[in-house]
Amino acid sequence: MQFKLIINGKTLKGEITIEAVDAAEAEKFFKQYANDNGIDGEWTYDDATKTFTVTE
């Protein structure tokens, strides 16, 4: 399945899409990606669109 991350950071904005087995695997990848890029904010997930959003 495809999952999307929308980044609304103070210094980094954009979107990335990955293939993952389930939402838990996608969330783990996205949170590591955000951590690696210094993004720390509020997370939301929309199951209907398979979209995670992080907002700083």
Rank of each mutant, 00 (worst) to 15 (best):
M1P: 03
M1V: 06
M1E: 14
M1A: 04
M1I: 08
M1D: 11
Q2D: 14
Q2M: 14
Q2P: 07
Q2S: 13
Q2I: 10
Q2G: 07
F3C: 01
F3M: 02
F3S: 01
F3G: 00
F3E: 00
F3W: 12
F3D: 00
F3H: 03
K4W: 10
K4T: 09
K4H: 04
K4D: 03
K4E: 02
K4M: 03
K4P: 00
L5A: 02
L5P: 00
L5T: 01
L5K: 00
L5Q: 00
L5V: 03
L5W: 04
I6G: 03
I6K: 08
I6V: 13
I6Y: 14
I6W: 08
I6S: 09
I6F: 12
I6E: 07
I7R: 02
I7H: 07
I7K: 01
I7Y: 10
I7S: 03
I7G: 02
N8T: 11
N8G: 06
N8Q: 08
N8D: 08
N8V: 06
N8C: 07
G9N: 09
G9Q: 09
G9H: 04
G9L: 05
G9V: 11
G9Y: 07
G9T: 15
K10R: 09
K10M: 04
K10Y: 13
K10G: 06
K10H: 04
K10A: 09
K10P: 03
K10F: 06
K10T: 05
T11V: 09
T11G: 13
T11C: 04
T11M: 07
T11S: 10
L12V: 15
L12Q: 09
L12Y: 10
L12P: 02
K13P: 12
K13C: 03
K13D: 04
K13M: 15
K13T: 08
K13V: 05
K13L: 08
K13E: 06
G14I: 12
G14S: 09
G14A: 10
G14P: 08
G14Y: 07
G14D: 06
G14M: 14
G14H: 14
G14W: 12
E15I: 10
E15G: 04
E15S: 11
E15C: 03
E15V: 14
T17K: 15
T17A: 13
T17W: 07
T17G: 09
T17E: 13
I18K: 09
I18E: 04
I18P: 00
I18D: 02
I18M: 05
E19C: 06
E19M: 15
E19T: 06
E19N: 06
E19R: 02
E19G: 02
A20D: 08
A20M: 05
A20K: 04
A20F: 06
A20I: 11
A20C: 03
V21C: 03
V21W: 07
V21M: 14
V21I: 14
V21H: 10
D22M: 06
D22Y: 14
D22I: 05
A23V: 13
A23I: 12
A23R: 14
A23N: 15
A23G: 15
A23D: 13
A23H: 15
A23K: 14
A24E: 05
A24Y: 14
A24N: 14
A24T: 08
A24H: 04
A24L: 08
E25V: 04
E25A: 10
E25D: 13
E25I: 09
E25N: 15
E25C: 02
E25M: 07
A26S: 05
A26T: 01
A26M: 01
E27Q: 15
E27G: 13
E27Y: 15
E27P: 00
E27T: 14
E27I: 14
K28P: 03
K28M: 06
K28H: 07
K28L: 07
K28F: 05
K28S: 15
F29K: 14
F29Y: 04
F29C: 02
F29M: 06
F29V: 13
F29D: 03
F29W: 14
F30Y: 14
F30T: 01
F30M: 06
F30P: 00
F30D: 00
F30K: 00
F30L: 09
F30G: 02
K31L: 04
K31S: 08
K31E: 03
K31A: 07
K31W: 08
K31H: 10
Q32L: 10
Q32V: 15
Q32I: 11
Q32D: 06
Q32S: 07
Q32T: 08
Y33W: 07
Y33N: 02
Y33A: 04
Y33D: 01
Y33R: 03
Y33I: 03
Y33V: 04
Y33K: 06
A34Q: 04
A34L: 07
A34C: 02
A34N: 08
A34M: 07
A34Y: 09
N35C: 04
N35S: 09
N35V: 10
N35A: 14
N35M: 13
D36R: 13
D36Q: 10
D36P: 01
D36M: 10
D36C: 03
D36V: 12
N37Y: 08
N37S: 07
N37M: 14
N37A: 13
N37R: 12
N37F: 06
N37L: 05
G38C: 05
G38E: 09
G38S: 05
G38N: 06
G38F: 14
G38L: 13
G38R: 14
I39C: 02
I39H: 14
I39V: 08
I39N: 03
I39W: 09
I39E: 02
I39A: 10
I39K: 02
I39L: 08
D40T: 07
D40R: 08
D40K: 09
D40M: 12
D40V: 06
D40W: 03
G41P: 01
G41A: 03
G41I: 01
G41L: 03
G41D: 01
G41R: 01
E42D: 15
E42S: 11
E42Y: 15
E42F: 06
W43H: 01
W43E: 00
W43S: 01
W43M: 14
T44A: 14
T44Q: 14
T44I: 12
T44Y: 11
Y45S: 02
Y45D: 00
Y45E: 01
Y45Q: 02
D46V: 07
D46T: 15
D46G: 05
D46A: 09
D46H: 08
D46K: 07
D47Y: 07
D47T: 13
D47W: 06
D47A: 12
D47I: 15
D47F: 08
D47S: 10
D47R: 05
A48S: 15
A48V: 11
A48Q: 15
A48T: 10
A48I: 15
A48H: 12
A48G: 11
A48K: 14
A48C: 06
T49P: 03
T49Y: 15
T49S: 08
T49C: 03
T49Q: 08
T49V: 14
T49M: 14
T49F: 09
T49K: 05
T49E: 15
K50Q: 06
K50G: 08
K50T: 13
K50R: 09
K50A: 07
T51L: 15
T51C: 03
T51N: 12
T51I: 07
T51A: 10
T51R: 09
F52T: 01
F52L: 02
F52I: 01
F52C: 01
F52G: 00
F52P: 00
F52D: 00
T53A: 10
T53F: 15
T53R: 13
T53P: 00
T53H: 08
T53G: 03
T53S: 13
T53D: 02
V54N: 01
V54E: 00
V54W: 02
V54G: 00
V54S: 02
V54M: 13
V54H: 01
V54D: 00
V54Y: 02
V54K: 00
T55D: 05
T55F: 13
T55P: 01
T55A: 14
T55L: 09
T55S: 12
T55V: 05
T55M: 12
E56D: 05
E56I: 10
E56G: 11
E56L: 09
E56S: 09
E56N: 10
E56A: 13
